[in-house]
């Protein structure tokens, strides 16, 4: 009856190793746990709500409507000759996914302290699950965006094929930042309070509700140092017609994403050994 899985190599337990790489094979071996943690997050998020998953649609819809009224109608924010609602939603969709990833990911280790102090598994799974659970919302919001565009008769061009790539960069960026913040949050709870503020400030420094064309030419390069500029502009380029590809900004974003991801993974790995003792 016992399923004996004879492991030829012993599990070697040694004092902390210092700097080392992430063991991706092990993360893969725990993929079912990753799936269940994502599934739990998604399940729990809308339990005991009357309209359940409809909130996924209603929240960004309400935001888009409010922004449309305030910035589109009153402030007459330029929106690159597109209906402001479409323009704003095309910015809010990737941004909300990113900021959600940031906030959930950075809080994830502390929120799962009971798991970390009682069970072994590659800790990387925890922030990864926090971010992956945002994909479900993203998918729903993408559909919403599609219908909004349909309503305003905005048809995407061939650049839409680049959408998966843009989303991948967004995901990598969210994970990279979350690896840093979640590991720091275990040690310094200040991070938990700082992250939402950071997310908000970051949003205003990114062309989410306004167009990056608003920024004077002279300051563009400073502005482009924000790696999310390339991501948001890239997303708009992919879904909205007739926009030039922000090649330089996107390349910069991708480079920053890779640096964040690799350094975040190394830092996370370094801190991982002490999570259970500190959290």
């Amino acid at each position: 009856m016992a399923r004996v899985e004879l492991s030829s190599a012993p599990v070697r337990i040694r004092p902390a190793r210092g700097w080392a790489g992430i063991n991706l094979r092990e993360v893969w071996a725990y993929r079912e746990l990753l799936f269940y943690l994502v599934w739990r997050d998604v399940q729990v998020r809308y339990k005991q709500t009357v309209i359940g998953v409809a909130w996924v649609v209603l929240q960004p819809l309400a935001t888009a409507v409010i922004f449309s009224i305030i910035f589109g109608n009153f402030a007459r924010m330029p929106s690159d000759h597109l209906p402001y609602a479409v323009f704003a939603m095309a910015g809010l969709t990737p941004w909300n996914f990113f900021s959600g990833a940031l906030i959930r990911g950075s809080a994830s280790l502390v929120a799962n302290a009971n798991l970390i102090s009682k069970v072994y598994f590659p800790r990387l799974i925890v922030p990864a699950a926090g971010i992956l659970s945002g994909l479900v919302d993203l998918a729903v919001v993408l559909v919403l965006l599609f219908f909004t565009m349909l309503f305003f008769r905005v048809v995407p061009g061939p650049a839409v094929l680049a959408l998966p790539l843009i989303l991948l960069i967004t995901f990598g960026m969210g994970l990279g930042v979350s690896l840093w913040l979640s590991a720091l949050n275990v040690q310094y709870r200040d991070v938990g309070y700082l992250t939402p503020v950071l997310a908000q400030m970051w949003m205003y420094a990114t062309p989410v509700i306004y167009a990056s064309s608003l920024i004077p030419e002279k300051w563009r390069w400073v502005y482009a140092l924000n790696p999310m500029v390339g991501v948001i502009d890239g997303f708009r380029w992919a879904v909205l017609p007739g926009r030039p590809a922000p090649v330089a900004a996107l390349a910069f974003s991708t480079a920053v994403m890779v640096i964040l991801l690799v350094s975040g993974a190394l830092f996370f790995r370094r801190m991982e050994d002490s999570f259970a003792d500190v959290v």
């Binding site: 599990v11 040694r14 902390a16 102090s117 069970v119 072994y120 003792d277």
Partner: peptide
């Protein structure tokens, strides 16, 4: 330690 939750 044996459960690999914390390191020695």
């Amino acid at each position: 330690i044996l459960s690999r939750i914390t390191l020695p």
